[in-house]
Amino acid sequence: MKKPTPPHESNLHIPTLPGDLRVVLGKLLRRLREQGDAGDFSSSQKALIQHLEQHDSATVTGLADALGVRPQSMGATVATLEAGGVLLAAADPNDGRRKRLSLSPAFLASIQAGRAAREDWLHSAVQAKLSAAEQEQLAASVELLQRLISHEQ
């Protein structure tokens, strides 16, 4: 197996690669979004949902601190998501004056169903469009993309 060229020795032969990669990944993301209903959420709502999915529950103040917004702004976001059945509130066991927020079981199920639909579509597309050798290339490129993601400015 050929060893990857160290970054300092890399000579980008294709000057359009960064732009091409951005466009292709954007199209792939759009296609994936079409496959599972992700809902019509604002970026702040999506950030809150992702945080709670990773951390199970939090207070409004904890969410505001974690996401870098004012508690009043977070309160408005929480109220909208609570009204839509996305969030459940329960008394904080350590401080009954506060409430802990978590994603509702129904909403979690819808997230999982959407992910499954997107993964099913992607699996089907890979099987239908790529040869076995191309599937191996794609698998190897995932590790390359992960390295790009970890690059810091």
Rank of each mutant, 00 (worst) to 15 (best):
K2W: 05
P4Y: 01
T5K: 02
P6L: 08
H8I: 09
I14K: 08
T16Q: 03
P18N: 09
L21E: 02
R22A: 12
G26R: 06
R30K: 10
E34P: 00
G36H: 11
G36R: 02
D40G: 11
S43N: 08
S44L: 06
Q45I: 06
Q45N: 08
Q45Y: 02
K46Q: 15
H55K: 09
A58K: 08
V60H: 00
A66F: 09
G68V: 05
M74W: 03
T77N: 14
T80A: 14
L81I: 05
L81C: 09
G84K: 14
G85W: 04
A90C: 00
A90E: 11
A90R: 10
A91H: 01
D92T: 04
N94E: 08
S102Y: 02
S102V: 05
A106C: 01
F107K: 04
L108Y: 09
L108H: 07
S110K: 12
I111D: 04
I111N: 06
R115V: 12
R115L: 14
A116E: 11
W121M: 04
W121A: 06
S124Q: 14
V126R: 07
A128V: 03
A128F: 10
K129G: 13
A132D: 11
A133D: 05
A133L: 02
A139L: 06
A139H: 07
V142T: 12
L144C: 03
L144W: 11
L145S: 08
